[in-house]
Amino acid sequence: MIEEHLDFNLLRKCADCGACYNVCPSCLYIEGYDPRAVIKDILEGGFERWLHSEHIWQCLECHQCLELCFQHYGFENAMTTMRLLATKKGIHPAQVKRGWDMFIKTGRLGEPAMGQRKRLGLPEPRPSGKEEFLRLLAIYRERKAQEKKGGEAER
C-alpha cells in the first residue's frame, strides 16, 4: 500500500543524502525528530511503528526540504505519506478530527466573528459556498463509492 504513495527509487537516494536535515526546522529544534529514521524504516519495511508516533505530525510542511532537494522530493513526501496512512487507520490527533468534522459540515474551519466585525465597522461577510460545497461533497462521495464497487467487481 505504501508503494502507491512513494517512489522508492527517490527515497533510497533520500536515505543516502539527508541534506535537508540541516534546514528542516523540526530537525533543528524538536528533540528526537529525525525523518531519516522514518525513511530507513519505510525502505526496510518496518514503518508501522511510526504511525503512532507524534513525530509524523511534527513535519511543519514548510517545504524547505522540497526546495533544497536535488530530486525535488525531500523528507516531506515520506512524512505526508505516514500521516495519510495513519489517518486511514484512524490514528490522528483529536484536533485534526475536529478540524475535518467542521470542514465537511460547513466547508470552513471557522465562522466569521460577527460581534467583533460589527465593532470594527466591517461589512457583512459575503455568503459562503456551504450549500454548493455540501452538494459537491455528496457527488464526490458517490463517485468514490462507485469506484470502490467497480474495483471490487473487477477483483
Binding site: T80, G107, R126, E132
Partner: peptide
C-alpha cells in the same frame, strides 16, 4: 470580493485525510 468561497482548504487538516 466574491460570493461562494469556502475554506481554501487547509493542508495539514484536509489534505492528510
Amino acid at each position: 470580493e466574491c460570493d461562494g468561497f469556502t475554506c481554501c482548504p487547509e493542508k495539514s487538516l484536509i489534505n492528510n485525510i
